[in-house]
């Protein structure tokens, strides 16, 4: 869906949510729950904690819909709520990310072993990134956000986001080097 159309649709849905429309709330939830859960899980690395925070995020969306002033997009507003609640949960649970929490991608069933190896190396390298760097790559390549949208959520400048994306990529290259693999070998 064209992003402009999606933005208008999300705004309309949130307006209906503010009027207490349960069907609109469900629709908004269905359109965003997967990306919000992905986001929370990548920060918290804990299934049940991510789910608990997701429940809280959408509860806040329901309660706060009437206060939304349209100064940002609905999507970035909800991600802002998710980020704040995730950071609070992180502090409370002192749940530190651990590289071992990630499972390797199994080679079984992959159609092409060379592709599987390449992805496995790259993913291992990505797991070695700092939360900040992994986070910004997630925003760009999973959430498909623009620099400005990311800047709105993180409350930093657009230029800082741009710089961070390229630092993240450089860090990924470095991590690949640490794994003892040259780029052209993967």
């Amino acid at each position: 869906m064209n992003r402009g159309i999606a933005v208008a649709r999300e705004t309309r849905l949130l307006e209906r949510v503010a009027e207490g429309d349960h069907a609109a709330f469900r629709e908004l939830y269905e359109s965003m729950s997967r990306s919000i859960y992905f986001y929370l899980y990548r920060i918290l690395r804990d299934e049940s904690l991510a789910e608990d925070v997701q429940v809280e995020v959408f509860t806040q969306v329901w309660k706060g819909a009437g206060q939304f002033r349209g100064q940002s997009q609905v999507k970035t507003w909800i991600f802002g709520i998710a980020r704040n609640l995730a950071m609070n949960a992180l502090r409370k649970h002192r749940h530190h990310a651990n590289i071992d929490d990630y499972r390797d991608i199994a080679d079984d069933g992959q159609p092409n072993p060379e592709d599987a190896d390449r992805r496995r190396f790259l993913q291992k390298a990505m797991d070695m990134l700092s939360d900040k760097h992994r986070d910004v790559l997630d925003y760009v390549f999973y959430q498909q956000m623009t620099y400005q949208e990311i800047a709105d959520i993180l409350d930093i400048s657009e230029n800082t986001v741009k710089t961070r994306v390229f630092y993240a990529k450089a860090a990924l290259r470095k991590a690949i080097g640490k794994l003892g693999v040259k780029r052209d070998e993967i």
């Binding site: 859960y37 990630y102 992805r119 790259l122």
Partner: peptide
């Protein structure tokens, strides 16, 4: 190449 990792990463997320 980085963007291409995301379908695999998503596959590993235990969506409720």
């Amino acid at each position: 190449e980085i963007a291409a990792l995301y379908p695999d990463i998503e596959e590993e997320i235990p969506f409720p």
